[in-house]
Design a protein around this nucleic acid. Structure first.
Length: 601
RNA sequence: GCGCCCGUAGCUCAGCUGGAUAGAGCAUCGGCCUUCUAAGCCGAGGGUCGUGGGUUCGAGUCCCGCCGGGCGCACCA
């Protein structure tokens, strides 16, 4: 509907240009919006204000020109007026609204979605990427749901999407995990060993040791570390990944690819990327990384840099900060970063650079990384690293998910891995339900922190906003079902007659149809911005409109003795149901056909 | 000290590339079930959009300073 309005405006502008009344090189980037005030018409347009300067006419004057020369061959616009500082307020013929219901019903499940893979773009969304040293906990929850929703959005926007999980199965942490597993394994045979500081005390490690014992018996009990460590690690990673996958499945999330960091080392790609950088002349050997700004590093004595200063012995540095083009710094990092330690071993960053190179080499047009805000410092390094390889860094985007404070009865819940007491995502889903969890984390933008109270989530079952949404869909389903019971089954889009459709004339009905017509645009915009919450707020508005309409017209109900009007209104209900179902699918929440009334308190 | 993010109703948060009288949910108060589910609807109160400047026809939105909060500034992953 909006595009029809736009077409008329564009045609008018072209006509004005042809008549020599105005001059412009290109059609301007103006907006056609739903006005906040209903009295302002069905749509409003700011084109006269936007073009004002370029054409050298005052907004009201230009607005008058457009109105008096409107090129509306099909009679779409029934009224157009100038208002305020130069807005154009438009009203459209009823059939333009009614057509939306048909459009929705004909599109069915694809309503609101671009044709699958129609953009021809390959998009990777990397999310979760929790260390395989333990279960997914609620600290991961926000990024997990956010990443999945972004992937769903990208898919709906017509991209070919790959969901990927980067497994940090290399380095100290998994080695420590392997050693912990071995100690637990020894304990199962009665060997007296104590866990050291930094090892993993949680019970799941004991379970892993039991599994291992069941598989290999005492085969590794008296072997040297070089023999048992790889095995213990492998078992631990395998078991943890299985647990992670099971948790994600409960959250209705399935990754397409689990990409192993260790495999990058094994295949030599980590070494290879160092050589690439060396060949490009963007590395140097030094004891300390150079900084872009002159002057001493200002670091708190408490900082980890100071704490671990003795580990920083120098090595090969990548010019993530000091690389210059035409005598100017072009990268954002503040200090060059080590990619090989003094002993020649690569660091985490080195592998991650190799991984991101891999993303580009695998042909992704866009790679989205969903990170926790505590990894924000990592972003400029990867961006710099990709630019130093000559890649277009705009093909890489980061969504930084801010911290969530988890409260229980007003008290903050600390996520302590040390004690082994973690509140797992699986527990949260068990307690609150997958839809509720997902909804809570998608309700807000990623880049704002928020608090959420576990008690509220559980107790709130009745007032929880997700039920409001789902009830909107269930109410549509219920009405359609009721119509069937009363013998006035909705005839469907193809059998619907123009006369039936023409009975949709109420302002509330037209407002809903207008809003429904916008789903595709909302999805496209949310996908572009990597912000799923726009879809959610869109649903909220649509559902509120519907509940209000439903209540307001109880005395003039949807299902009435007037068969023609009933069919028209059922078309609206069916279209709304489909619109909500499509939107819910993009968010990943379920669209129930029926909901029980909640138990009375 | 430096960098990134945030500051909008009592609370939790929306506010699209700057647009007309700043919104929703929760909470509070007052109404609405013999009709298609009251997990709903209607109404009321509640705001110097942290603060001070600037940019322009027009600023919650853009720029700068300041105040307050979070995260980061290890060759750990």
């Amino acid at each position: 509907m909006k595009s029809q309005v736009r077409a008329v405006i564009n045609a008018t502008l072209d006509a004005l240009k042809a008549k020599g009344l105005i001059a412009f090189a290109q059609l301007p980037n103006y907006s056609v919006e739903v006005p906040k005030q209903a009295e302002h018409g069905d749509w409003s347009c700011n084109v006269a204000m936007v073009m004002s300067k370029a054409v050298g006419k005052k907004p009201p004057e230009l607005a008058e020109l457009i109105i008096s020369n409107l090129a509306d061959a099909s009679g779409l616009i029934t009224s157009i007026s100038k208002a305020g500082p130069g807005f154009l307020n438009l009203k459209l013929k009823d059939s333009a609204f009614q057509q939306v219901a048909l459009d929705v019903l004909k599109a069915g499940e694809s309503w609101g979605r671009a044709a699958p893979q129609s953009t021809g773009k390959k998009v990777m969304v990397e999310f979760v990427s929790a260390n395989p040293t333990g279960p997914v906990h609620i600290g991961h929850a926000r990024g997990t749901f956010m990443g999945d929703a972004i992937a769903r959005l990208m898919d709906a926007a017509g991209h070919e999407v790959t969901r990927e999980f980067y497994i940090n199965d290399f380095g100290n942490q998994v080695d420590t995990l392997g050693r912990t597993v071995f100690k637990r394994y020894q304990q199962l045979f009665g060997v007296k060993v104590e866990l050291a500081e930094g090892e993993y005390p949680a019970d799941y490690v004991i379970d892993i040791a039991k599994t291992w014992k069941a598989e290999v018996g005492d085969a590794y009990l008296n072997q040297p570390e070089s023999a048992w460590l790889p095995k213990a690690k492998a078992v631990a990673i395998r078991e943890n990944l299985n647990a992670i996958k099971a948790t994600l499945a409960k959250a209705n999330i399935a990754h397409d690819v689990f990409f192993s960091e260790a495999s990058l080392h094994d295949s030599g790609k980590v070494r290879a990327i160092v050589d690439v950088y060396k060949d490009r002349g963007v590395t140097y050997e030094a004891a300390e990384g150079r900084r872009r700004e002159k002057g001493d590093k200002v670091r708190d004595a408490e900082s980890k840099a100071a704490q671990y200063a003795d580990r920083q012995k120098g090595g090969t540095f990548l010019m993530t900060a000091t690389y210059q083009e035409n005598g100017k710094y072009v990268l954002k990092d503040e200090e060059d970063r080590v990619i090989l330690r003094h002993d020649g071993t690569p660091v985490y960053l080195t592998a991650d650079l190799a991984y991101h190179k891999e993303k580009f080499d695998r042909g992704f047009d866009l790679a989205v990384d969903v990170f926790g805000a505590d990894h924000a410092g990592h972003v400029p390094r990867i961006q710099s690293g990709m630019k130093l390889l000559g890649y277009d860094e705009t093909r890489l985007k980061f969504v930084l998910v801010q911290m969530v404070r988890i409260l229980r009865g007003g008290e903050e819940v600390k996520l302590s891995k040390r004690s082994g007491n973690v509140y797992e995502l699986a527990d949260l889903i068990e307690d609150a339900g997958a839809d509720v969890c997902r909804f809570i984390f998608l309700m807000k933008t990623a880049n704002a922190q928020f608090d959420f109270d576990l008690d509220d989530v559980k107790r709130q079952s009745k007032d929880n906003p997700v039920f409001y949404f789902q009830y909107g869909h269930a109410r549509c389903a219920s009405i359609l079902k009721k119509a069937e019971e009363k013998g006035t089954r909705f005839v469907g889009a193809t059998a619907l007659t123009p006369a039936q459709l023409a009975r949709l004339v109420l302002p509330e009905e037209k407002a809903m149809l207008k809003k429904m017509s916008l789903l595709g645009e909302v999805v496209a915009s949310a996908a572009e911005k990597l912000e799923p919450h726009h879809v959610l707020y869109y649903c909220q508005e649509l559902i509120a409109d519907f509940h209000s309409y439903y209540t307001q017209y109880k005395s003039d109900p949807i299902i009435s003795d007037d068969a023609e009007k009933t069919q028209g209104r059922l078309a609206l209900v069916a279209a709304l149901k489909q619109t909500l179902k499509s939107a819910f699918a993009i968010l990943g929440i379920s669209a129930p056909e029926y909901m029980e009334s909640p138990p009375e308190e």
